[in-house]
Design a protein around this nucleic acid. Structure first.
Lengths: 605, 605
DNA sequence: GGGAATATTCCC
DNA sequence: GGGAATATTCCC
């Protein structure tokens, strides 16, 4: 042997070696001796081969590589071994796979304790000698400092780091005052790291430190002495074993999926295509997965051939879930809640978004951005808005208005509309179809997706009824929603028929439209809100030109004469509020009650 | 020195050592000697430190670990070094980052040559002495066998594998007859692998082999001698350097996203919930992103605060694209094309799917699976079908039929349908609303999403017109689509009114249904196709029970008397074909022309 | 400090 | 054979 260096074994604690250099080289083939125990991945720490040669010596610089080879042997510790492996689970050495190992009976910290990362100094000395993690060897320098041993998977890095710090490597690296002092990065890199890791690169060490939340607080330059702190580190070095590794960023995942999607040559242009690929149909296509897709997803997960289009079952499930998330969020934000309230939780998802009468646009946390619209939203508008939510709502309303406008401008193509005006159904942007009969129970949902009809809605929820009833009819709801979004007041008044206080009468309570002038005002305000320059809608399929309601020569709400009904429908308009919705808006704007089948016609307003 | 072992250097080819044991140990701090060159990740192969000690000796078992430490030094080879690093790019030792390094001028193979993996034996001897990959040292055993050197990133594994095979390790592993013979797995594991990798685990070696497409063709048991072949391997061992690593599975990505979605406490149950969360509304919610969502996505990508709901801009873009993919695929496969034709491209996405009259279900490549339905699909059905696409189509049709059935069974809730039957609109599964008026121009699209009406459709495309016109009316199209899917013939006849050749009259041309009996037959066939046992549909929200059209006591198409109209609609049925569509089907099945508002009623068929 | 790719480990 | 998690490398 050229040079013998010994491996510290305070963490591996075989009980027979005290110093830092007590390993024995064994170069004979197929006998891979090492006293380093590396925690196997997924929470299992190995102590393999420790019986056969638990006092191995080998050259210092290569201990890690050898240890790695040893760790891979997949043999459980021999019965009666005096080895107390660091985190090893005796009862299930390799039976437990990716699921977390069960907790050894003799080890004390509860799940709660783990979560709290508490510094409890009670020592689990584990008198029965079972290989309870980090507990059975008083010679183990680490153990002297440890609180209760971890009862959970410990990342290899944390295990080796802790071991490195409890071994006598203080010339290079040291645990002191709840922080890690790196005295000699170059020396650490070349002399120490390879004993504990499969590399000897200080930068790799740093990368791992970073994964576990260590921050450099002193030291300049790549290889300068420095200190690391960790917010979860306590004085007790064993607190390091409870640190959670940061999750791999998701961007990579998304990027991969995105790359795959790109490979498939999907024309993103479809979103903004115009011309023959009419905007209405574009919007329809964008209208998302249909029920069959979702059903298919579930099926594809069970399909041997894999999912369709190169995405697998998990991805399909993902899409399905994301889909639901988007829908639910949308429902919460928009369908009933309008623009009211800012999401208070993560990205607005958790918040109720003003659903139950909480009014006013409020700046929100993570999504809060300077409110480019605040000046248009009335005196109660906060300093910032949830821009995505706001834009989404605006877009929804815009689409509805546009659709209405399309019908108002051209009428139903090829149809004389005079006598079947009330027979048209309408569909909102959530795909809900509202039967044309004004006295049928239209389909509306609350934020939970529950269906409500006039008959079944609990009194505390929105109801639908005919105009003049004691619940809100769907048209009034939609109108109020739009008005609320336009004016910055998201709360929908409970009860009533939507024909109450007039817009503009009270700037703090502009929830209702009860005159033609106010409807026109509302519509114009809507239009202006969709674009910073007041005329074009951002992101409109055809560049926004036709999003200006005035583009056809008629402002929305200025209905054409019946003679105009035969005009053909513009082809570039997205789908949204239907002809009948416009009728309802018109009707309500004039104070008419949408009570019957044949009472709604176009009006000048 | 206890024992010296030398490191083979044929690939590292420092020119001064020939045998397998020519390295020199240098244990002095900060001088990490090694002659192994490990290709750095991302296509750069290191030859660092080779000048300082290019004939290093060190213990055999730990060469790899040391080499790894050396490779991390990040120093370019010294000028004038006699080292010809394997794949090192002189001109940009570390300047080039993740993007592929540019090709050295003196190295010859073109990108095309690389792709072809050709066995061209021209030796690139690179007279100017630049370290062109694998080319400058006649002593390199590998080079003697090599074709032109690779001009692309070479994975570390491939480099080390090739080196291992060209070094004299034939006692353990050998390159022979374009395959890799592993003579002694245990010996390889413990004696050879650690020289080339950061481990000495045969299973890790195998995992890598698998990543690069090697298949075991002989040898049983985990550690038995065996052979590996690779479809891209040529006799020339350098062909190994051109093998592409398999991409990381995407499942992990999706799983991560899924886990994230789950964190947000989304109720997947919504999909199958019944009761107050009625199935119709469930399906509506599942109906996917609405246009606003898509537009919002685009915005969120530019939002500093990140996207909503904890998903980032990339993920939003991903969802948007996947969304389009699903929609486009669906449109292509289902809306007009039905089941006809197999996708010819990747996962069927690129193919036109029988849209323009290409009939017949054809087995496709990657998604082609044994056709469990083939026997039901008529004589022209191929040996396999695109099962996901097929199931999707079936699901779509099933949902439509179910919806029709729901209405047929219960009528519109709370409505006396007798006198406004024709005033109901219907909406297909793509969100297209078909106005109720039978002589209005309904909205249909071709596979490109183009809108067509009777007036605007080019003559080469489908048109819609009133029954009896020279174009196909929408109901006929839908019916044909369903029939085509049911019978396995996806092509839709151009022109005509859908009431032509009868189903069953010609088994190779069963595109049309023109009798009540054939409609009934068609419907029954549909039902049976949805389930292998002929009675239940897979994936139905309520376990499939209600998917049997007979479950309500009426077969679809056997309309109830008008008295039955007041029955309440079943709550667990997905949305699909509407009441009016059923009317149209009924009407056409009886040869009636859907010409007027009030002519469609239920019939016994 | 952290994104992203490949490497290694563990498991099914 | 390959999915999935962590480790290591490389880079911004």
């Amino acid at each position: 042997m050229l040079k013998e260096e010994v491996l510290p074994s305070s963490l591996s604690d075989n009980g027979s070696s005290k110093g830092p250099c007590d390993a024995v080289t064994n170069n004979s083939d197929n006998s891979n001796a090492a006293s380093i125990q590396r925690p196997l991945q997924h929470g299992i720490v190995s102590s393999e081969n420790s019986v056969a040669s638990n006092s191995a010596t080998f050259p210092k610089h290569h201990a890690a590589a050898l240890a790695a080879s040893v760790a891979a042997d997949h043999s459980a510790p021999a019965p009666g071994s005096n080895i107390a492996p660091a985190i090893h689970r005796v009862s299930e050495p390799y039976e437990s796979r990716r699921s977390p190992p069960t907790v050894s009976e003799n080890c004390t910290p509860t799940e709660e304790e783990k979560k709290e990362n508490d510094g409890n100094d009670s020592v689990n000395n584990n008198a029965n000698g079972s290989p309870c993690p980090l507990s059975s060897d008083a010679n183990n320098a680490l153990l002297l400092h440890m609180a209760a041993p971890p009862h959970h998977p410990v990342a290899e890095f944390l295990f080796q780091l802790t071991k490195m710090l409890t071994d006598d490597n203080s010339e290079y690296i040291e645990w002191k005052n709840s922080s890690i002092l790196v005295h000699d990065p170059p020396g650490l890199e070349k002399r120490i790291l390879p004993k504990y890791f499969r590399h000897s690169n200080y930068s790799s060490f740093q990368r791992q430190m970073n994964y576990f939340g260590f921050r450099k607080i002193a030291g300049k330059g790549k290889m300068a002495a420095c200190s690391y702190v960790n917010e979860h580190a306590k004085e007790d070095i064993s607190s390091l074993l409870y640190i959670k590794r940061k999750k791999t960023s998701l961007s990579g995942s998304a990027a991969k999926l995105l790359a795959q999607a790109n490979k498939l040559n999907i024309q993103q242009d479809a979103i903004s295509a115009s011309g023959a690929f009419g905007a209405m149909n574009t919007m329809m296509m964008m209208n998302g997965m249909n029920p069959n897709t979702v059903m298919m997803n579930g099926m594809a997960a069970n399909t041997t051939g894999g999912g369709m289009m190169g995405i697998n079952a998990n991805q399909l499930a993902l899409l399905q879930q994301q889909q639901l998330m988007l829908q639910q969020n949308q429902n919460q934000n928009s369908l009933l809640g309008g623009m009211g309230g800012g999401g208070m939780g993560l990205n607005g998802l958790q918040g109720m978004n003003g659903l139950q009468g909480t009014n006013g646009i409020q700046g929100i946390g993570i999504n809060g951005i300077p409110n480019m619209y605040a000046s248009k939203l009335g005196p109660s508008a906060g300093a910032s808005v949830n821009k995505p939510a706001f834009m989404r709502d605006q877009q929804q309303i815009m689409a509805q208005l546009q659709h209405a406008h399309a019908y108002a401008s051209g009428g139903l193509p090829g149809t004389s509309m005079g006598n079947n005006v009330s027979s048209q159904s309408f569909m909102n942007n959530f795909g809900n179809v509202f039967p044309s009969s004004a006295n049928s129970a239209a389909i509306l949902t609350n934020d939970q997706g529950n269906l409500y009809s006039a008959a079944s809605a609990p009194s505390s929820e929105w109801k639908m009824s005919n105009c003049g009833g004691n619940a809100t009819n769907p048209q009034a709801l939609l109108l109020q929603q739009a008005a609320a979004a336009a004016t910055g007041f998201g709360g929908l008044p409970q009860g009533g028929n939507g024909l109450g206080q007039g817009m503009g009468e009270n700037p703090d309570d502009m929830r209702r439209i009860n005159s033609a002038a106010n409807l026109r005002s509302f519509i114009n305000q809507q239009i202006s809100l969709f674009s910073e320059n007041g005329s074009q809608a951002p992101g409109a399929p055809n560049g926004g030109a036709s999003m200006n309601m005035a583009s056809t020569g008629r402002s929305l709400g200025l209905s054409p004469s019946m003679a105009g009904m035969s005009e053909s429908m513009p082809s570039n308009l997205p789908q949204g509020l239907s002809y009948e919705q416009l009728l309802q808006l018109n009707g309500m704007a004039n104070g008419a009650c949408a009570g019957g089948d044949s009472q709604q016609f176009f009006h000048k307003i």
